[in-house]
Design a binder for these strands. Structure first.
Lengths: 153, 153
DNA sequence: TGTGAAACTATTCCGTT
DNA sequence: AACGGAATAGTTTCACA
């Protein structure tokens, strides 16, 4: 189990994984070694999965976000496997969820521009059959914390 | 502008931001100093925004993902400001996009369990008026790379 | 562009509570 | 079991060739 200090450390690391242990130790009122041991434990216990760099979408020339809802009439495991493989092969599709309700799948797609979706779309439908594919362009990112909630009010 | 080596470095850093410069240098066939200078440039030019820790959702007791579509009949800037503030105040809402088409907003919500959505829902509707709120539970994360595409086939 | 030394950080060790 | 302090090991950073 983790305590409030651990939670605080995890929140800090979610914000900035480059903070020196020294600084983190100060923020949670611990010695460097105690703090370091906690971080090691949180890592080996699997709370911290990895540390990654966040890149600038505009700089990387992929500023466009689209969401795509998918409905299928074929609910066989064969179809799913096929779909899964197709989705895995397209780097522009960064997230895919199977949902409850009248939408079967939701894709998040990251693209250089809206027109590029057509290429991806064609690549998908050439490999998988769909009953319905509806796409929504993101006009504005109102909120985006890459962080999971660590505390609850 | 960035070249193929830069692109490779960025891809590596997106995968694992803890790699020592030494290792990265080997992977792109560069000297440590040359590689280090590239990384510094990529950072100061804003390609690399920051480095963050990725936490385990299950370990953190928030395994549930929901997507919520929102439609409003009030398109005033006042409503938007109100909505934006409400969304900002809820840590469980990790992403919010304004979309084209018949869905106005799409929320991604991270929760301890499905039941918890009711609490969030009540908190939202107490502050903002909605025309329609539809929620979809994620049954399965089919794909999720926290990475933006760095190269195109 | 590369070398190597200085500066900074992470990590381990050990005695204490 | 977990802490703090001190010693050690490893990386990053940068001046200079």
């Amino acid at each position: 189990m983790i305590d409030d200090r651990d939670r605080k450390l995890l929140a800090l690391l979610q914000e900035d994984a480059e903070l020196p242990v020294n600084d983190m130790a100060e923020r949670v009122a611990l010695s460097v070694s105690a703090c370091w041991r906690r971080i090691r434990r949180l890592t080996s216990d699997g709370y911290i999965l990895r540390r990654v760099a966040i890149l600038d979408r505009r700089k990387m020339q992929v500023p466009t976000t689209m969401y795509v809802t998918i409905r299928t009439s074929d609910h066989s495991s064969n179809w799913l496997e096929n779909f899964r493989a197709a989705v895995a092969d397209v780097p522009e599709i960064v997230e895919t969820y199977r949902l409850t309700g009248n939408i079967d799948y939701l894709l998040k797609v990251i693209l250089p521009d809206v027109e590029h979706w057509d290429i991806i779309y064609k690549r998908l439908v050439s490999r998988v059959n769909f009953f319905d594919v509806s796409s929504y362009i993101s006009m504005e990112e109102v909120k985006s914390t890459g962080q999971i909630p660590t505390n609850f009010v």
